[in-house]
Structure formats: C-alpha cells, structure tokens
Amino acid sequence: MSARRREDTHAAGFLRYCLDEAYLSLTRRWRVAVLSTLMLAAAVLVVAAALVLSGVLGDVTTRMTEAAELSVYMSREASVAEREATAAATRADAAVAAAEVLDADQATARVTADFPDLAGVITALPERPFGAVIEVRLAATASETQVEALVARLRAIPAVDDVGYDREVLRRVLLTVTTVRRVVTTLALLLALAAFAAVAAVLRLGYYARRDEIDLLGLVGAPSRAISGPFVAEGLLQAAVGTTLALIALRVGTWMVWRGPAAAWGLAMQLPDVPFLTWQHMLTLATAALAAGALAGWIGSREISR
C-alpha cells in the first residue's frame, strides 16, 4: 500500500470517526439537539421565505415598472398632423418602448369599457369629452431622469393638454417594497444569528457531556483535529437536517399559500405558478447554513481547547 493510499485511508477513517462521534453526541442529548436543529431550521426557513418574498416583490415591481405608462392627452383642437407628429417624436425617444395613438372615439370607447358605470353619462354628452390620446409604454431600461425629461418635452408641445404619469404611486410602491425587503432581511439575519448561537450552545453542552473523554484524548496525544472534528461534524449534521426541513416546509408552505389565500392576488399580478427558490439560491442557502454549522462547531472546539 503506497504512502498516499495509506493517507487516504486514514482520511476516510478520520471522517468516519468524526461522523460517528457527532451522531453519538447528538443522540445522547437528542432533546436539546432536536430543539437547536429546529431553531436552525426556523432561521433557514425565514431566510428562505425572505428570499422567496423578495423574489415575488421583485417580480411585482418589475411588472409594475414595465407596465408604467405615460398617457399623452391631446387637446380636442389638435389636428391629425399634430397628433401624428407628437406620436412620432414620442416613439423616437430612447425612454419609449412603444406608443399607440387612440383617436377621440377610441379613447372614449376605452374609458367606457374601463368604467362601465360612466358609459351612460359619457354617451349622453352632446360632444365627445376626450381628445385623442397617445398611450406610451416606457422602455424597461428608461431611467427616471429620462422619463421626466420626456414628460417635460411633451408638456411643452402646444397641442398637448396634459401628460399623465403615475410615478408618485410607483415610487411609493417601490419604497414600500424596499422597506419590506429590509425588515424581512434584518429579521432573517437576527434569527440566523440566534440559531448560530443555539447550535454553538448545544455543541458546548456536548463538550461538557464529553469532557472526560476530550481531556483524555488530549493527554494521550490525539491531534487537535480529532477534538474539533466531531464538533464540526455535529454542526454540519444539524445544519444539513435543519436546512432540509426548512426547504421542505417552505415548499409546502408556499404551495398552500399560493393555492389558498394568495391565489387571487397571484393571478391579478400575473405572477408565475407557486414561487420558490432557484437552484442557485437553494445551493447558496445550504452552503451558508453548512458553513455556519461548521463554524459554530469549530469556534466551540477552539474555545474548549484553549
């Protein structure tokens, strides 16, 4: 057997030793271990839910931003040539994705379709209440400065009566979304820290339960990795189980919410089917949880061996 092979065999044996000891330690104090694993699962669940919520809110704001329209109300006296010139100038702007011209009849028809209760009043009027309207869809890449400049230019055209742009509403929605994201992220981080502390505390309890054994290992020459290894493995096991539980709970939870209370909202927002984490998010989350578990074990064992 080559030296390299012998080294590999020892590495595998060492890994088995760490996992065996971690399993033994967790099963010896299973009640505390279950509690800390559940706490870790709760932390991962909140972080994962925050990511899902953030993704959904991101989708909603993207859709709202994409759907943000400018309505250019032409004066009733505006000629067809002025209307077409205004539309052409609008289409030529970099902030504009598309512009549709509705003549006075089409504009009236759209209002009566959108507000059927007003249809009777509008048709009873002696003359059409609206001039032509140019409905503008903004480019996804359009900055607020570009849009504001466009609005200013359009308002300066004499044939234009008014320009409607709901940027205040959109701004408020975006602000709310950002605040919600920050609150949820802060909450998730706090919970993650609490879970980290809980796992570290459980590992410390594990040390006290195995103190005689660890002291003996030190006296008979076991390397420091033989003392820290099982603690790191214990942290990793708790993180792996906690993350798996959290992801299953989140999957079931989002499915139930999306099929129940949030179904109508999801449809209204034209959001895709049951939202969930991407593979990349899941991988990142699992890696972070495992790293935190291992770190808690390593820090605990370092404090012990001091």
Binding site: T9, A12, A222
Partner: peptide, 11 residues
Amino acid sequence: AVVARAMGVPR
C-alpha cells in the same frame, strides 16, 4: 484504541 480511532486508523 481511543487514539488510533481518533487518528482515523482503519478499524
């Protein structure tokens, strides 16, 4: 075998 085990020596 306490140390041998901790060193990962094959069982």
